[in-house]
Design a protein around this nucleic acid. Structure first.
Length: 922
RNA sequence: GCUCGAGUGGUGGAAUUGGUAGACACGCAAGACUUAAAAUCUUGUGUCCAUUAGGACGUGCGGGUUCAAGUCCCGCCUCGAGUACCA
């Protein structure tokens, strides 16, 4: 075999490992570069072809930066706590640590075969006690901190306790759930338990009874971002609301900074927008309306300028005041409506937005400015969970209020000057207000300010900013996660001392909740814990996102036993320069990682407050699933073209049993036990044809393509180049191996460039000719430009072009080929390293320097001008490149080919762009 | 509904500031080598008309700006992703 990729790849992978070729230096005169791919959760299915896509891109970039003289950090690790290993443990009794270890090993083998330049000495695993010791430590810091809204940063809780002792809490502007005001005297008089309860309302991680998303099937609570379409993201199980005592993270304290600092990072607009929506800032006012009976109803509005347009009010059906204010006459109707609403699931309620429904309570509120009577309704378009669960309805300015008013025949008052609201509400903020007392003739934006001023002056309410972002639930009733460094004494939580960390996971007999519904850790006896204090330890564990919120910091200083990262190393490596990963983490991981980074910055542990400077989201690689069709009546499997003659259910078939849509019948029977006795209704030619569809790759769809088979058949270098060649990194694309032979052929042709017919090295020291140098320098320029704008697919084409051109030129000059090897080495490191050695280089190509582009080689004496007539290219005319505009024009017009298109007429206009084009207007 | 992104040959895609549309590859077709196949190599390959020469049309659709538009502007259509009674 001429190009023996198997031997070559094994040889150099061993060499790189033995020589620590990719070790990042902690100190260097070179500028630093931190390139990072999101670390994977090691699932049982192994790596599929979608995983390496991002890794290959960050690897190419890391290598490219290294060749350009940067000190590069390019690490890899594993997000190794998580649900699947635990679900597997519940089913089989196997300890999740064993499952995880097994999966990890397989991941590593797969990764190693692809030839990544990871610095494995810096590997981190979130489930490693040496790692989660620091996750627990960061949790402790959050517990010992509060958020000062005056300084806009987190501060130590000790400073807060001091203030309480001297001035009470009235003058403190904090992000807190504490509403009660107390004096310094009060504070001193409180018991420890009372003081602790108050401090809980300030801490950045806190214990509170809160409504949580409870997933009975998984036996745990879930964060909002772990729920998609009303069901759990993992497993697709239903979720219900439940009041539970849980640890939470006060991420809302950082809402404003998380929003503003998006402007300082180079991410896609789409991800930034998703974060903005998730944070959901709305500026407006809280206004209190009094009912005729004297109850207070607080509403939140972003349009206080429209307050004179209020013609009714709406409460959420669950609003606590509903039963109190409803008059006897309307009681039955209101209760019926409440009942109807409660029967609807959250999902149904959101799905059906067209049906207008509601009920009048019989009660009236008094308009704070006009004193008018305003009807109070309940309706399910007002949500209990947002704002105050009550709105002041302004039909002329809000479409939902407009529709509601029309439906129930409520008055629609127009307070916008010269605006027609006969068809729909006017929701733009650019109208002039009228019929509104002191707001008359003001444009909306000014009116908003004045309205808030008046509302505050009269004591009806105040200006307020609301966020959709909620505090994040941080406890999970699961086994396979970080234990909390927390114990309880008399139901008061206390922290475990630093020198006793980590609190490691105790052994348990089963990975299920206890009979009385406590989390699995409650099964552990006192002596099963390595650290046990007080009445009992915390039984909850941390969520999956705990470990992944700071792992990028640990890579900087992975073996530090005295700190999660030393300040010195954090200062050196600083932000991640390039972060590559999927966009599915837009509102989860990326928000939490930003939050923790900002917190650690506030506390002075690190010197930057955004973790990821530049981010690229690789598109998903989709799989091509195959389907079989089972007749519901007979249970027989019906072939694709006959499926319509039967009542069939569509089932996934393993794509490895399908070749060109034809099913391997014996293989299918042997695949799953329930198919052992399968019978078939075949095509007329006796084959079974499968259906197919492009969808997400997943184990349950049996459409997972692993990279292993391709590495085996074509080699890692081919796989690397091919995954990049597929198309733009950010774009989603179906996986298709059709084109891979073309890329493999390129590498073989590249190999032949260095060898004669008998596969002997054939490289000369002779001076290369001009054409070869031109090809080389054209390629240097292209690769540099492409990579600098993160275009990973186009360099492969340019490598092919260069190889094709040099082959046509019979170029075997060492001077040219040597530089070409460096160019290609970031994409195909193994073959380049091998040829590099063969042409007599002594040191690894990973230590080489990226060639310098010299424009002189691209200078040509002649350029073939495309000559257009009326914008249509007609012919090409070679002319000297240094010819003046006037001479070019004269030369083109006097050329005999022009005569035909001019047809005897004089040109109206001639445009000459030197070195580009000539256009003649006739 | 809103936000973001994308629509280019049979296919994946290229064209960085408006300046030769379809690079590179796959596939397909013809040929060479071979007993044959595979592999390899050569040539061709946007569509339509034309024997050729050549011509017309072509980047989702309709307009516009310009000497020149895949690229810029206006109005639509389709697909993908995210998100939603957020007051």
């Amino acid at each position: 075999m001429e190009y023996n990729f198997k031997d070559i790849e094994a040889k150099w992978q061993a060499y790189w490992l033995a020589n620590k070729s990719y070790a990042a230096a902690d100190q260097s005169d070179q500028p630093k570069y931190y390139g990072l791919s999101m670390f994977p959760y090691p699932s049982g299915a192994g790596l599929h072809v979608g995983h390496p896509l991002g890794y290959i891109a960050s690897d190419i970039y890391a290598r490219y930066k290294k060749l350009n003289g940067f000190n590069v950090l390019h690490p890899m690790g594993y997000d190794s706590f998580g649900l699947p290993a635990e679900q597997y443990a519940i089913q089989t009794g196997q300890h999740p640590a064993i499952t995880t270890e097994k999966n990890l090993k397989r991941y590593r083998e797969q990764l190693d075969k692809i030839g990544f330049s990871f610095d494995w000495d810096r590997e981190v695993r979130t489930s490693d006690p040496a790692y989660y010791k620091w996750t627990q430590w960061i949790f402790k810091q959050l517990y010992k901190a509060w958020y000062n809204d005056e300084t806009h940063k987190a501060e130590s809780i000790a400073s807060l306790v001091e203030k309480f002792g001297t001035e009470g809490n009235a003058g403190i502007h904090a992000c807190t759930d504490q509403t009660e005001i107390f004096s310094a005297e009060d504070w001193k008089g409180y018991s420890e338990k009372e003081q602790e309860a108050i401090l809980m309302n300030y801490r950045l991680t806190f214990l509170a009874d809160s409504w949580v998303n409870w997933c009975p099937a998984l036996g745990t609570v879930l964060a909002n971002d772990e729920i998609k379409d009303g069901v759990s993201e993992r497993g697709g199980h239903p979720v219900e609301q439940k009041l539970m005592r849980q640890w939470s993270m006060r991420i809302t304290a950082y809402a404003e900074r998380l929003l503003n600092d998006l402007e300082t990072v180079d991410w896609t607009d789409s991800i930034k927008e998703q974060q903005r929506n998730w944070i959901g800032k709305s500026v407006g006012a809280a206004v209190t309306f009094k009912t005729e009976e004297g109850h207070d109803i607080e509403v939140f509005t972003t349009r206080p300028d429209t307050i004179f347009g209020v013609s009714f009010m709406v409460l959420a059906p669950e609003h606590e005041l509903v039963s109190e204010i409803t008059t006897d006459k309307y009681k039955a109707a209101v209760e019926k409506y409440q009942q109807q609403t409660s029967l609807k699931t959250e999902r149904d309620r959101q799905a059906d937005v067209k049906t207008i429904s509601g009920a009048f309570t019989g009660a009236y509120a008094v308009h704070p400015f006009t004193g008018d009577k305003v009807e109070i309704w309940i309706a399910d378009y007002v949500l209990a969970g947002y704002g105050t669960g009550a709105v002041m309805a302004v039909p002329c300015g809000d479409q939902r209020d407009y529709d509601f008013a029309n439906h129930f025949g409520i008055e629609i008052k127009n307070i916008f000057k010269d605006v027609d609201i006969s068809e729909a509400a006017y929701t733009e903020k650019d109208a002039v207000i009228t019929d509104s007392d002191f707001l008359n003739d003001l444009p909306a934006k000014k009116a908003i300010k004045l309205a808030i001023f008046e509302i505050e002056k009269e004591g009806f309410g105040k200006g307020q900013t609301n966020y959709r972002l909620r505090d994040a639930v941080f406890s999970r009733q699961r086994y396979w996660g970080e234990p909390f460094p927390v114990y309880y004494k008399n139901d008061i939580p206390y922290l475990i001392e630093d020198d006793r960390l980590p609190v490691t996971l105790p052994e348990v007999d089963k990975y299920l909740p206890t009979e009385d519904g406590e989390p699995p850790l409650a099964r552990a006896k006192k002596e099963d814990w390595n650290v046990s204090e007080g009445d009992h330890m915390e039984y909850n564990t941390m969520p999956g996102w705990a470990g992944s919120s700071w792992y990028f910091l640990r890579y900087m200083d992975p073996h530090n036993e005295a700190a999660f990262v030393s300040r010195e190393k954090a200062d050196y490596w600083n932000q991640v320069d390039l972060y590559i990963g999927g966009s599915e983490h837009a509102t989860g991981h990326l928000l939490y990682a930003r939050f923790w980074t900002k917190f650690l910055y506030d506390m002075g542990f690190i010197g930057f407050n955004e973790p990821f400077k530049k981010m690229i989201n690789q598109g998903m690689i989709l799989g091509r699933s195959s389907f079989v069709y089972r007749d519901k009546a007979s249970g027989k499997f019906v072939t694709f073209n006959k499926r319509k003659e039967y009542q069939t259910a569509r089932l996934h078939a393993d794509i490895h049993l399908v070749d060109n849509d034809q099913l391997d019948l014996e293989g299918f029977k042997n695949w799953l036990p329930e198919y052992a006795n399968a019978t078939f209704i075949l095509e007329d030619d006796g084959s079974y044809q499968c259906g197919h569809e492009v969808e997400k790759m997943s184990k349950s769809k049996y459409n997972v393509q692993t990279p292993d088979a391709l590495v085996e058949k074509y080699g890692a270098d081919t796989l690397r180049c091919y995954e990049m060649f597929l198309g733009p990194l950010e774009q989603a694309k179906p996986w298709d191996t059709k084109g891979i032979s073309g890329v493999h052929n390129f590498l073989r042709k590249f190999w032949r460039l260095f060898h004669d017919k008998d596969n002997n090295l054939n490289v000369t020291d002779a001076e290369p000719d001009k054409k070869a140098l031109k090809t080389l320098h054209k390629t240097i320029k292209k690769i540099q430009e492409d990579l600098d704008r993160y275009s990973f697919n186009t360099p492969v084409s340019n490598f092919m072009i260069a190889t094709n051109e040099l082959t046509d030129l019979n170029c075997n000059n060492r001077a040219v080929l040597r530089e070409l090897l460096i160019l290609i080495s970031s994409y195909a490191p193994h073959i380049c390293e091998e040829l590099w050695e063969k042409i007599g280089e002594k040191e690894s190509i990973t230590k080489a320097t990226f060639p310098t582009f010299n424009p002189d080689y691209l200078v040509e004496a002649e350029f073939a001008y495309p000559v257009s007539f009326n914008g249509k290219m007609r012919f090409k005319l070679p002319l000297p490149t240094n010819m003046s505009k006037e001479d070019v024009e004269a030369a083109v017009l006097s050329d005999e080919q022009s005569a035909k298109y001019l047809d005897g007429k004089a040109p109206k206009k001639v445009i000459v762009v030197p070195g580009r084009i000539v256009n003649i207007v006739v």
